[in-house]
């Protein structure tokens, strides 16, 4: 009990004094996860929009596949990317293994399905009559998809936040692809895993508090955006 309390006090101390290692790991974590989320958003929102709007054979199969991949284990995503970018793999020449870029690739792939799937759900939630209204007003197919995404923007923002949450909190892919190299690919989750196993409870706790604080901050920002109901366009 004492140990935990002591660890907590030290953790707060590390944060308040802006311990260089703590700051450096936190900043890198944010960079990697934000970049992954941005890439996954750029891919998954239009893809989700197209799957929603178009009728084609095998649509149900694709939707089911996407939903199955919601719970893709992070180590499987890690393994898949590892096979792609290891020296012997097809993209080995890119030398991405054990680099932050490799981690971004792995995290993007990891969160793509859940973001595309939730975009689909968000678009299905838009009243059918809105789609009719938009089409009736003379929108092209692309304009219709964009307008529907605009109508569902708050729900889609929820999908983006969830994707970010999954990216920043996962250990498996970060460890396998990044390798937890100090000062290069070490992120909050891999650092917590390592420091805990080495007995550095206070450092782990400090990093854990920061991880939670980031999650809290992101959710607060989303709440604020969603409250500002109608932005002008």
């Amino acid at each position: 009990m004492n140990e935990i309390l002591e660890g907590l006090v030290q953790a707060v101390h590390l944060i308040v004094t802006l311990n260089p290692e703590v700051i450096e790991i936190s900043v890198r974590t944010l960079e990697i996860s934000l970049l992954s989320t941005a890439i996954a958003t750029i891919v998954s929102v239009p893809v989700g929009g197209l799957i929603h709007f178009r009728e084609f054979r095998g649509k149900r199969v694709i939707v089911t596949l996407i939903q199955t991949l919601y719970s893709l284990p992070t180590v499987i995503a890690g393994l898949f990317v590892f096979l792609l970018i290891s020296r012997a793999g097809p993209f080995g020449f890119l030398r991405l293994l054990f680099t932050p870029a490799g981690m971004v690739l792995a995290q993007s792939l990891l969160i793509l399905p859940i973001m595309a799937g939730l975009t689909l759900t968000a678009l299905s939630g838009v009243d059918r009559s809105k789609r009719d209204t938009i089409i009736s007003l003379g929108a092209t197919e692309t304009q219709t998809v964009l307008s529907l995404i605009h109508e569902a923007r708050f729900a889609i923002l929820g999908a983006v936040v969830l994707g970010f949450g999954r990216a920043i909190s996962e250990v498996g892919a970060a460890m396998m692809i990044g390798g937890n190299i100090r000062g290069f690919t070490r992120v909050l989750t891999t650092a917590i895993a390592l420091e805990t196993s080495m007995g550095n409870i206070s450092l782990s706790l400090a990093l854990g508090i920061i991880l939670l604080a980031i999650a809290l901050a992101v959710n607060l920002i989303v709440m604020l955006v969603q409250q500002e109901r109608v932005p002008h366009d």
């Binding site: 938009i134 307008s147 109508e151």
Partner: peptide
């Protein structure tokens, strides 16, 4: 152009 029975507002002004 068409006016629907229960017109829905698009989420803007």
């Amino acid at each position: 152009a068409m006016v629907f029975q229960k017109p829905v507002p698009l989420a803007t002004t």
